[in-house]
Design a protein around this nucleic acid. Structure first.
Lengths: 213, 213
DNA sequence: GTCTATAGAGCGATAGAC
DNA sequence: GTCTATCGCTCTATAGAC
């Protein structure tokens, strides 16, 4: 999103609302280069401001990254909500949320790894923590209906599955030797359904770890 | 592994076999800092040689990284082989390989994403390609017994699951809100068993995508 | 084969002009 | 609030001494 007049103004570049524009550009860049290559300077260039400008709005790189991650978490929660909207069956809801999660990670390269990153935890971004919990509840709510006390275990398994689909797709592994042209969303969703079926169907012992002696 | 005399020699540092020592140190560093932060200079420092020394043995950073990845792939294939050694049931073998994969990724931060990385594909390291196939066959062989024509789909699902467990653990997500003190290996293995059960048990339609109209 | 030294680049962050 | 300019750091890679 750029101000009216186009992205490339000559000379001074006055911006109405730089902070959100930086966050938006940061999100786009995260999707293209990944969290490791995330650079304040490059985001500034992308928006068309000097490399010093972001530091008027964000204390340092990590604070900025946390703000971008918080924005991503908001979008992720929304995407997951939309994906399960109108679904009654908890297995369908959990699998739908997993599919949306995988697709989001594949596209934006942000998932629970970044949202709950230990590096960003020091920044203590309130938005990030709250939205992270929102993402988790999209998974936990249907999981509780399915597995009761074993909900956390089931969520862990489904999250791992969805996260794996997202990251492998982002790294070009799934597209390399693609066996279907089915999108990531559908593949992850179907795999999650199988996992859920196997975890609950073959007995809850598949989900809950054996009690320790 | 360092030459006798200890890691810290004064003055000139003569090394018997620098190349393998660099690969080994690179592997250790990969596990600590991750592939993105992988740096030739830091590996050289870790071994105790100048930052120029590695370039006598490897053309550039990517070639070096490919060699490290090839070494990792060898270890990974061995770990997976050992994990399934003596197991007859193909489901147990596939799940065991998945557990070993997850644990390896958690510890070394190298998985199929790095081994089949598009960035390293340009280097065309023969070892890397061959060992990557060896890793895949540990998963594909039992999968074929289980799913026949749907083997590739099942492997994709299991790989995504194991990769998710490995990366999330490496990023500190699983340890953060740990729900068990069960190790990653066992968790990923059990989740894989559930997935396999659900994929084959509830009908093969869970594995193979619907045929297109 | 390893060293020292260096060029050249990118990034994080700050200082001071406007 | 944004700019220009700059410092200090790390990294990749090369040149040349030994």
């Amino acid at each position: 999103m750029l101000v009216s007049g186009g992205p490339r103004l000559r000379g001074r570049y006055h911006h109405g609302d730089l902070a959100p524009a930086l966050v938006e550009a940061g999100l786009a860049q995260l999707g293209e280069r990944g969290p490791a290559a995330f650079s304040v300077a490059e985001v500034a260039r992308r928006v068309g401001v000097s490399t010093a400008a972001p530091y008027r709005h964000f204390a340092d790189r990590d604070t900025f990254l946390a703000a971008v991650a918080a924005r991503a978490a908001t979008l992720l929660a929304a995407a997951m909500t939309e994906a399960v909207d109108g679904l009654a069956d908890p297995a369908e809801r959990l699998a739908g949320a997993a599919g949306a999660y995988a697709a989001f990670v594949a596209e934006h390269r942000v998932g629970l790894d970044v949202i709950f990153s230990p590096g960003l935890r020091a920044v203590r971004d309130t938005d990030l923590a709250a939205t992270g919990r929102a993402v988790m509840s999209r998974l936990l709510d249907p999981s509780r209906e399915l597995a009761g006390d074993g909900a956390l275990h089931l969520v862990e398994q489904v999250v791992a599955l969805a996260h794996g689909y997202g990251t492998l797709d982002a790294d070009g592994f799934l597209t390399a030797d693609r066996v279907t042209d089915e999108p990531t969303t559908a593949r992850a969703r179907r795999a999650a359904l199988a996992l859920i079926a196997g975890a609950s169907g073959a007995g809850a012992r598949a989900v809950v770890p054996p009690s320790r002696p």
